[in-house]
Structure formats: structure tokens, C-alpha cells
Write a protein that binds this DNA or RNA. Structure first.
Lengths: 211, 211
DNA sequence: CTACGATAGATAGCAGAGCTATCCATGACA
DNA sequence: TGTCATGGATAGCTCTGCTATCTATCGTAG
């Protein structure tokens, strides 16, 4: 299809599509002569991906670039690629950051024994815990245990349902699942707060806990 | 304390503190004469709150303003205030947005029966589900059921542990808990993926699912 | 009592992200 | 043969979140 049709089908403005092409987020179309390129379904899908990562996952375009780079290239080292992609997801962590992460370590112990103490997610957890603590919302061991139990159960479902088969496809699934299911879970939790608060009774503090 | 001490204790640059004062995010100090104001512990806490909401929860300053406004004013209608505050949390939803939210409704049914179909969280869930779907990661009813179960369990813990007592304090707790525990849960989920993937065995697809 | 350094308040500038708009030359197509 | 979409380049624009500078004032040490 021509660029005008791509624009029409995705709803992304022409100037923006050109910008994404310039930035290398969207691969160039198949050139037909010097003044015409044709685009395919993969361009439609890529645009949807860019918008989803940007709008829903809140990724800056630099992060989108990292993620699509991992998805595009037939990665020689899948584990390393995956690490890079997930590290590009928000919240941002300084590259030279490293442990120890005391708060995170305590919580991680509740989750499992096979956690790399230097992974980006540890730094993210440490920051999140420190921020909560700094405003008087420190997480009790009991709460950590509760969250750990349920988060682990969801992760078990996730891992069991990663499509087996081609490695590239699995990686894409894991990266996008991490990025795009997080907002889903967050929204579901807000709804659950509503529901639980209303179920618990109509008056007092609990009724105020509606979203 | 003087402004210089406030700067020193929080690590926030002087120019930035002045900016927050200008923007009304930080209440003015107690004026002592025309050229000196004194600040207290509440200013230290407020600065920590602003930075936590901005850096960890990813709130734009306009959203921080909304949240602190709700926390500050002794709200006449707690439920309404709470709704405004939680609606200010990312991801952003257009003010005039309204249902129906078909994808979200299907998932919400798994969570509970007491959900307001017009709440902001429904719109957020709808967008998140649509985004996931648009890149081929639509959520199966089975997955929705799994997530709903565990999210609800966490929400039950949360609601049961909201401090009872003064309403203002409860509201603050709920708003900040919503905003600041989401990143905690997200990071924990990433760690759980790591752990489950490694526990499941060393080779093949599952080993690639490390973060 | 005086000089110095901190302060309040105002204003201007700046950097990065993410577009958006314009221009031009070309070439497809009617 | 004329018109219009296209590719390619470049410039500019808006918003957010600071940062820097200037000035007048004031508390306080010497």
C-alpha cells in the first residue's frame, strides 16, 4: 500500500509517520522507483506497536527503539537481548547502577531463590520501595509475603503460556507481555479495590476506598 | 529551618525548590519578616512526596498538583476527592471519555460485581486491553480469570489494612498506596518471571524468559 | 554600624522529547 | 501535459521541567 493508505489505516498523521521513518522506528517501505515506496501489513503492525508502547506502556521513543531493535534482529544471544529490552521499560534505571539493594533483597527472598541480585528489576524494586518508605508507606514483611505469593502465581501462569517454538517469537511475547500486561494488571487492581471496598460494606472508611 | 537547610536535607536543588513553591506544589514557609521564611518537617515530607510521585509513579507535575490538593484540603466529599486523585494517576484518560468499554467489562466481570462501569479505571483497562490486542497479545478469558483472582486477593489485603481513623489520613493512604505500590508490584512481577523461568529448568524457551 | 552573605521574588533562558509544517524536486498516473 | 502524491530535507513549534541571573532586602557577625 502507499503511504497515504498506511496513514489512513493507522490514524497516525503523515508527518509523524515520516518522523518515525527518519528515526528508524519504522522500517522503510519497499522502494518502487525513486519516488514511491510501498508498505505492507508489517508496517501497520509496527505502527500499532509503537503507539502501544508509547501510549500504554509509557515508553519514551528511545525505549521503543531498543525494544523494536530486539524484536527485529534475530538475536544471537536471546537472554542478553531480553535483558536489554526489559531494562528499557520504565521506570528508567541508570546504566551504571548496581547493588546492594537491601529493601529489594528482603522482598525478593519472599518471591524465590533464583533471582539475579544484580538485575534491573532489583534496582527498580529498590527504588519503588524506597519511594514508598520515604512517604511513610513502608511495606511490612506481611504485605511483601502477600504480594509475593500472588505475583508469583501470575508469573507462573505467564511462563507456562509463553508460546513455544521459534525463539524470536517467544522473546517478542515476553517483552511485550511484560510491557503491556503491567498496565492491565494495574487497572485491574484499581477495579478490585473498588469492588472490595464496596463489597465490604457501605459506610465508613471502606466506602471511601473507591477509585 | 531555613531554605538552605531544606535544600541540604532533601537534596533537591534550590532553584527547583523555588520552582515548586512558585507552582504551589510546596506550600510557602512561615514568613519571618520580609526576607526570611522558615520551613518545617512537613516541607521535607512534601518534597519527598513530590519526588516519589514524579520519579517512581511517573506523574507529571500537573498530576502531582492534583494529588497534593486532595491530600491538603480537608475534603468535604471524600469519595469524590479520591476519585479525582486516582484519575490523575497515569495512564492519562481524556476527561470527556466514557463507555461502553466492552473488553474491560468482560474482564471486570471476573473481578467482581460492584464495579462502576464508568470509572476511570475502566477506561484505563479498556485502553490497556486494546493496546495489547492490537499487537496480537489479546487476553484470553482464562488469563483474565487468573489475573482477576490474584489481583483481587491483593486488593483484599490492601483494603483490610487501610488505617482506620481520620478520613483524611485514610484517603492519603489509599491514593499513595495506589500510586506507589503499582511500581512495586510491577517490579516484583518481573522478578517472579525470572525466578519461575529459572526454576522451571535451565534450557529452551523458559530459560529465555528471564528478565 | 557596617559589611557580608543568605534570602525572596521576579524574569528569562534552556534542554529534551515529540512532533508538525513547509519546501522542493520528481515521477506516477489521468 | 498537467496535476497531485510522494520522498527527502530542514526548520520550527509546544510542552514540561527545570536552571540561571538579577535585584532589593534583611539578619547577623564582627
Amino acid at each position: 500500500m502507499r503511504i497515504s493508505e498506511l496513514v489512513e489505516r493507522t490514524g497516525v498523521p503523515l508527518a509523524t509517520v515520516k518522523y518515525y521513518l527518519r528515526e528508524g522506528l519504522l522500517p522503510p517501505g519497499r522502494a518502487v522507483g525513486a519516488k514511491l515506496s510501498l508498505y505492507g501489513e508489517e508496517h501497520v503492525r509496527r505502527l500499532a506497536l509503537i503507539r502501544a508502547l508509547r501510549d500504554t506502556a509509557g515508553l519514551p521513543l528511545a525505549g521503543v527503539r531498543t525494544v523494536v531493535a530486539v524484536i527485529d534482529e534475530p538475536s544471537p544471544d536471546p537472554v542478553a537481548s531480553l535483558g536489554r529490552a526489559v531494562a528499557a521499560l520504565p521506570p528508567a534505571i541508570a546504566e551504571d547502577r548496581h547493588g546492594p539493594y537491601p529493601r529489594a533483597a528482603a522482598v525478593a527472598r519472599e518471591i524465590g531463590e533464583h533471582i539475579d541480585p544484580e538485575s534491573t528489576a532489583m534496582a527498580q524494586l529498590e527504588d519503588a520501595l524506597a519511594a514508598a518508605e520515604s512517604v511513610g508507606l513502608g511495606i511490612s514483611p506481611e504485605r511483601a509475603r502477600c504480594y509475593a505469593e500472588h505475583v508469583r502465581a501470575m508469573a507462573e501462569y505467564d511462563v507456562a503460556h509463553v508460546p513455544s517454538g521459534e525463539a524470536a517469537r517467544s522473546i517478542e511475547h515476553v517483552v511485550l507481555g511484560t510491557a503491556l500486561y503491567e498496565p492491565v494488571i494495574a487497572a485491574m487492581r484499581r477495579l478490585a479495590h473498588q469492588d472490595v471496598a464496596r463489597s465490604a460494606g457501605a459506610g465508613g472508611v471502606r466506602a471511601e476506598a473507591e477509585d
